[in-house]
Structure formats: C-alpha cells, structure tokens
Design a protein around this nucleic acid. Sequence first.
DNA 1: GATACATTTATAACAGGGTTATGAAATACT
DNA 2: AGTATTTCATAACCCTGTTATAAATGTATC
Lengths: 232, 232
Amino acid sequence: MSPKPAAAEVKAKLIEAAIRLLADGGPEALQARKLAAEIGASTMAVYTHFGGMGALVDEVAREGFRRLSANLGEVEETDDPAADILTLALAYRRTVVENPQLYAVTFGQSAPNGQKAALGDMTNEETRQNLSEEGIVAFGYLVRAADRVIKAGRFRPAPEFAVAAQLWSAVHGYITLEVAGYFGDGENGVEQILVPLATTLGVGLGDTLEAAAESVRVSIEAWRAKEGNIGT
Amino acid sequence: MSPKPAAAEVKAKLIEAAIRLLADGGPEALQARKLAAEIGASTMAVYTHFGGMGALVDEVAREGFRRLSANLGEVEETDDPAADILTLALAYRRTVVENPQLYAVTFGQSAPNGQKAALGDMTNEETRQNLSEEGIVAFGYLVRAADRVIKAGRFRPAPEFAVAAQLWSAVHGYITLEVAGYFGDGENGVEQILVPLATTLGVGLGDTLEAAAESVRVSIEAWRAKEGNIGT
DNA sequence: GATACATTTATAACAGGGTTATGAAATACT
DNA sequence: AGTATTTCATAACCCTGTTATAAATGTATC
C-alpha cells in the first residue's frame, strides 16, 4: 500500500529535530528550511508528511503532553496521597522548567505559526470524553490523586474532577509565572511560593494544617534527595 | 527640539491600531503593513517611532498591563477584604476574557515576533524594585488586598508578598486555562472552578470555612449584579 | 524480470512578511 | 529666508512558508 516504508521514520526524525531546534533556539528556530537541513532533506518533507508547519507544530505539542504524562506516570503512589499531589506538582514543574520552549508550544503559548493546542472543555461531562487523548492522560493523574485524598478523608467530599481542576489551575499558574521569570532563578520560587501554596491548597480543601504541613515536608524531602536540591 | 510635533500622536495611533488589529484578527494580524494602512501611513512609521515591530509589541504589552491596572484600581475596598480579593480576581478575569489576544501578548504567551514581556524577579526584595512599572502596579493591588486580610486577622500572619504570589499563581493559572478553552464557555468555569478555588485559598490561608464562604458569596453576588450574570 | 503505478523527494519559483536605503517633504530654530 | 533635523513614501532586500513540477524510488502486478 505504501511505496516507501521510510515514511514513519522520516516523520519521527522531523519531530525529534523540531524539539531539538525548539529547545536550542526557541520558537523562531522552528523553520521548515532548518528542519530540512537538520535531517538532511528538503523542505518538502514537511509537506508530504505533515501538510505544513502548522500540523508539525501540533504534533510537537502533543509530544510535549506525552512526555509530561510519562513523567507524571513515574510518580509512585505512596500511602500519603496528599504528599503525592505535591510530588506530582513538582514533577510537572520539573518537566516544564527543563524544556520551557517545548511546553510553551504544548500549552499554545508560543505560537510559531499562530497555532493553538486546545484540548477541549473539561467542565462538561460529555465533552470531556472527546478531549485529545494526550491532554486527558496527563490531567488524569491529578484527578486520580485528588480522588485518593478525598477517599482517605483528608479532603472534604467533592467531585474529584473539580478538586483536580483547582489544583491544576494553581500549579499551572505557578509554573507559568516561574518560567516567565517572575519568581527568580533556580528553586527560589519553589521554596517561597509553590511549597506554601501546596499547604494552602491542602488546608483549604479540608486537610488539617498539621497533616498538610507534614505531607508537604515528606514530599519536599524526597524531592530534595532525588533532584539533588540541597535546600538552603 | 523636535521638528515634527506630531510624533507622539502617530505613536499613540499606532498602538491603538495595533490593539484593534490584535483583538480582531489575532497575533498574525499584527503586521507592519497592516498597521501602516490602518493609520494611513507607510511602514516606515513603525521604524521611525518604535525602531521595529518588536518594540511596538513591547509597548502593546505594557499598555495591556496599564489597562489591567486601571480595571483593578476600579475595584473598591470594602470592609470585607477577603471578598475584595475575589472581586479583584473577577476583575482580572474579566479584563483578560474580554480581550484574550491582547493579554496573550501582555503575558508574553503569544509572540508575533518572538518577543517576551518579562517583568523581573518578584521573590527578591532588591530586584523587586526595578521591575517594570506597569507590572508592579497591577501586582500591587493584590499585595495590598492580601495585607488587609492578614491585618484583619482572617489570614494567618505571613509576608503579604508571599500570600499575594500564591493568589496570583492560582488566579492567573485559572484564567490562562479558561481562556485556553479547558473550562468551557461563558461563566461555566467561574462557577465550577474559580469560586470554589477562592474558598479553598481563603480557608487554606487561615480563614474559617464559614467566613470564607460568606465572603465569596458577597463578592459573587455583587459580580452577578454588576455584569448581568444571572446565576443558574 | 519488466512494466505500471503510487509515493516521496529535490529543485525552483512564488507570496507575504520584516527591514532597510534613499531622497523628498515638513517643521523648528537662527 | 536659510539651515538643520526629523519624518515619511517609495522601492528594494532578505528570509520564511508554501507550492508547482519533474525526477527518483519503491511496490505491485503480469
């Protein structure tokens, strides 16, 4: 059926090259001619395999979601689900901080060609079904974690989706502002804002101040050990 | 000193035209040739008055901050500072929702020319001084509101800046995700997510559940009356 | 194995952006 | 009035996405 079986391979190489160019040179480095040169082909490769730069950027955005989901999936569920939430937030943050350019595209912020990567409405029970698979998978980790905390009796009973959406808003907002440069370099913002924010959210959703603080402490300690962040 | 006194006027007309084009046609409509046609001039106007599209976009971003500050400044301080915080958040949200394209530029998300509108580090006492004036003014309203709630004894004692940064993260994140289309159309997300989030933040920062809920109720009621949002 | 067909690819051109020289027009100062 | 300085319109330049076009490459059929 397909005269040239190398098609999928070229497609993958283009995506790979796109992410590399994006990470190195920012959105303006994501150009058809540079991509072609990177994989040793002509610009036509972009058009035969994607139809244009727009679709390629879309695919890059989806790949970002896939990598985010993969990183969130590596977070193990412990017997302290409240701590797991902050651990997920820290994994989310680390993923974005390590490749801000990619996630600017993934979240439709940086738009090399005026693209948007909208996933769809999450507040509607029905439309939530036909969301892009990549986005719903990533969000699903938060929903599951929220559900576990509620079932453990530490958050007040509430729709786990609504709780997850609140957590997502707060964490996403924090990460967006940190990456934009508002909270300084390094782990400064994590210590001064994200950690207190995690406590605030835990207590606000029903946890006791003591339990929330302890969960935050546990998660942060593991984070420091894992990422080699010797807290100051 | 200046041979042509019309300079400032042309500059203002360009900014005005840029915001109009942006609102109507999105980032890709923000072009030197279109701007020139809009004000009945040649593209050189952009270069003599701004030096290039980049600087013009920068100026548009600052204008967005100025308008945001103006809208936040219109929020009156009541004797319920916790309610005022949600009122500020709703004004913030309304400003962005009414002109998402402008605020995509203001927050450096949409980058017609790869521009960024970074304001600077807010976690550092010293560097916080030399932030761009436009950004610090807008953020200042939140800091002042947080301070009032703390002084009223409803939030636990804490640096008002840190509290404001948490609030800003959460609200900014919510707005970003709503505008991106994740929370459906209209006031859906406000009712389902932003309002509960406000309660969560209030309680998490030290307020009682009853007091926080009452403040949210008061603010939302005023909001419905003002914006004509007949709650469902 | 040779031929027909579909797909991919390289080349080259086109269209539409930002930007830049250049000289003319317009205004303020002397 | 004359001079200097700024602004502006025209036209070109460069770069980027895109699109014709024809050659090359592989698959399927006889």
